[in-house]
Simulated scan of single mutants.
Amino acid sequence: MDSLLPFALLCFTSFFTLTNPLGTMPVFLTMTQGMSKDERQRIVKRATIISFLILIVFTFSGQFLFKFFGISTNGFRIAAGFIIIKIGYDMLQARYTNVKLKNEEIRTYANDISITPLSIPMLCGPGAIANGIMLMDESTSWSMVAILVGIIALVYLLTYFILKESTRLVDLIGETGNNVMMRLMGLILMVIAVECFVSGARPILIDIIQSSLPDMLPAGAAH
């Protein structure tokens, strides 16, 4: 039980910051400008369900993909660390999203923005997918797997309510409040990314050092 609580907190903080529903609100309001409340609600509902399903599929199939492509877990952790730290840096600069949308693109996606770009890559981007695969790899018991799936469901449930009430929330917290929260979450995300990078780099460096030690020893020293 003592190890499950820190794992649950790690899952929640990392997924919530990577999903970033608060930062998605302004972009979502721009893309749905002129739509009714019911239309926005349908878009949000579909986007969160699709994001949840995609993330669950990648989370559970990650190890199979590693074996199929011959990718090491530690190498993936290092790459994921770079991805997550880039997202965290953007949030630290109070950039609403790492997806740059032009007016023409918004019009193009107006008929089905619930899939692209709202679900992919905004609510379920490469950072969230990489995080899901890593946390599944660290889940050593069925209890941890259940917590991981439950936290993902909780995060997307919160995302649904946040985007559903985005108009009220934007007026409530204001631009300054949103920027402050964005920077704090970005800082947390960068710390998680550093831990992720170090956990992947440490075993690789240890293997390199251990494999090079016999060559560095004088002849006969091993005997």
Rank of each mutant, 00 (worst) to 15 (best):
K86M: 07
W142P: 02
L148K: 13
A221G: 04
P21Y: 05
Q63I: 00
E39F: 14
F16G: 00
G174Q: 15
L9M: 13
M25Y: 09
I162S: 13
L53N: 06
E104P: 00
Q210C: 00
K45P: 02
S141C: 04
L22Y: 07
D38F: 13
D171H: 14
V149E: 04
A146Y: 05
S211F: 00
Y160A: 10
G75L: 00
I43F: 03
I188R: 11
S139A: 14
A193M: 09
K164S: 12
I204L: 06
P117A: 05
A94E: 07
A79H: 10
S61P: 00
E39I: 12
P121L: 04
V155H: 06
N98I: 05
I209R: 08
A94F: 06
D137M: 04
A219I: 15
A47E: 08
S72Y: 01
A128P: 02
L118C: 04
T32M: 10
F52Y: 10
A219K: 15
L163F: 06
A130W: 06
P21C: 01
T73V: 01
K86G: 05
S212Y: 02
M134F: 05
P121D: 09
Q93V: 02
F7R: 13
E39H: 12
R95P: 02
P218G: 12
K67R: 06
C11F: 04
Y160Q: 12
E165I: 07
I209K: 09
L22E: 03
K100T: 07
A94M: 11
P121A: 05
I49C: 02
I208G: 00
F7Y: 15
I120M: 06
I162D: 07
G186C: 08
V99M: 07
C11A: 14
I106S: 08
F12S: 08
D207N: 09
V44A: 11
I208Q: 03
M216N: 09
A219F: 14
E175V: 14
L205I: 10
L101W: 08
F66E: 00
I120Q: 09
F66Y: 09
E105S: 08
N103E: 13
Q63Y: 01
I85R: 13
I151Y: 10
A80C: 09
L65R: 07
G177D: 09
L154M: 13
T73Y: 02
L9C: 12
I83C: 05
I87H: 11
M182R: 12
I206R: 07
Y160E: 06
V27D: 01
A193I: 07
S143N: 11
T59D: 04
M1P: 11
I84H: 12
G177E: 10
F68K: 06
R183M: 03
I151V: 15
Y156E: 04
S36I: 12
F161I: 12
F82V: 13
L29Q: 14
V145T: 08
D90C: 03
G200F: 02
W142E: 04
A130D: 04
V27Y: 06
F76C: 01
D90S: 11
R46S: 14
S211P: 00
L29W: 09
V198R: 15
D112R: 15
D171T: 14
K45R: 14
L154C: 12
